[in-house]
């Protein structure tokens, strides 16, 4: 657009980041990142979400220093069972006389572990299946997408339950089950994105340079699908946490005495009326972290996927 923009000239490192003529690969990339960061920070809720997620990571790393008691070994069963929140036990104690605050702190490790593993397993599978199906088309597309449909046809928790039942209860198997059940939506998204770009001129141009199909998919198609997928995975994190907690609640996820939040809510169920804190505190943790991921996902969508935000 023409006309003189009345923009005050930024200075120093900002000018360097926003330079229209970056001098190196890194400057170009950082400049792009900085612009994204600027539009991200314009959304206070998203920053809050990021704060929650960062907090989760910090708490998980420094659990040993933060937690005042052991998460597994309880106190005196006669005098320290089911104590209400107090100065010594911030979140109270449970039926095994364990400090709930310490258990919630250590539980963050399990939650983070589940999230990271699921993201690392499900995202690449979904991305690969979706882009390959979308780019190649034809019978490859048909076969891959029918498999995806089969997975999509079952409710996620039921399918995860079936997998855990087959693999045996335990946190690792729960993670595998959740990962296996969460890639199909990612494959769908990646395929839809791929379909819109596979006939574009820049893909035709790289084909005409003699690029191989894997090169086109990995180097040219995947980067464009990645942003909408990151948004979707972040938004899904809340669901993944809930599924993990649900499996724990049903006794199919983490096994006692692991301080998994869902399993903690399950034990607290028995004391819900008289000792509400036993179930409420881990429940609150699940709620805060899920909300944090949702807000973060919303903010990321505004930055990475401006079309969908409208």
């Amino acid at each position: 657009m023409a006309g003189a923009p009345s923009l005050s000239q930024p200075s120093g490192w900002r000018a360097w980041l926003l330079s229209p003529e970056p001098g190196s690969r890194w400057q170009a990339r950082l400049g792009r990142f900085y612009l994204g960061w600027r539009s991200f920070t314009r959304n206070p809720l998203a920053v809050m979400g990021l704060g929650v997620v960062v907090l989760l990571i910090l708490v998980a790393i420094f659990a040993d220093f933060i937690a005042p008691y052991s998460p597994v070994i309880g106190g005196d069963l006669r005098t320290q069972r089911l104590l209400p929140p107090s100065e010594t036990y911030w979140f109270g104690t449970d039926d095994q006389a364990r400090d709930i605050f310490s258990r919630v702190i250590y539980g963050s490790r399990i939650t983070l572990w589940v999230i990271v593993l699921v993201a690392l397993i499900a995202t690449p599978i979904g991305l690969l299946v979706g882009t390959v199906a979308g780019y190649l088309g034809g019978w490859v597309d048909t076969v891959l997408m029918r498999i995806t449909d089969i997975f999509l046809a079952f409710p996620r928790l039921i399918l995860a339950l079936a997998f855990v039942a087959a693999l045996g209860p335990g946190i690792e198997n729960a993670v595998i089950a959740i990962a296996i059940t969460s890639w199909p939506p990612y494959a769908r998204i990646a395929r839809a994105e791929t379909l819109t770009i596979r006939n574009s001129d820049f893909i035709a141009a790289v084909k005409l340079q003699g690029a191989s199909t894997p090169r086109i998919i990995l180097g040219h198609v995947v980067p464009l699908c990645l942003s909408s997928l990151i948004v979707r995975v972040t938004l899904d994190m809340a669901g993944i946490i809930l599924t993990a907690a649900g499996l724990g609640f049903l006794g199919l996820g983490a096994q006692p005495p692991m301080p998994e939040w869902g399993a903690m809510v399950a034990t607290g169920r028995n004391y819900l009326i008289d000792q509400w804190w036993v179930a409420a505190m881990p429940g609150l943790a699940i709620f805060v972290v899920s909300l944090g991921f949702n807000l973060l996902g919303d903010g990321l969508r505004d930055v990475l996927d401006p079309k969908a935000a409208k």
Binding site: R25, A28, F202, A204, V206, G210, P223
Partner: peptide, 27 residues
């Protein structure tokens, strides 16, 4: 080699000029 009609569609939106030009050389 070929040059396309729409310069807005024929360059990969996430690749710098450097990457666009180095791709054929790498291939």
């Amino acid at each position: 080699q070929m040059v396309f009609q729409d310069p807005y569609a024929s360059l990969h939106p996430r690749h710098t000029v450097d990457r666009t030009l180095s791709e054929p050389l790498a291939i």
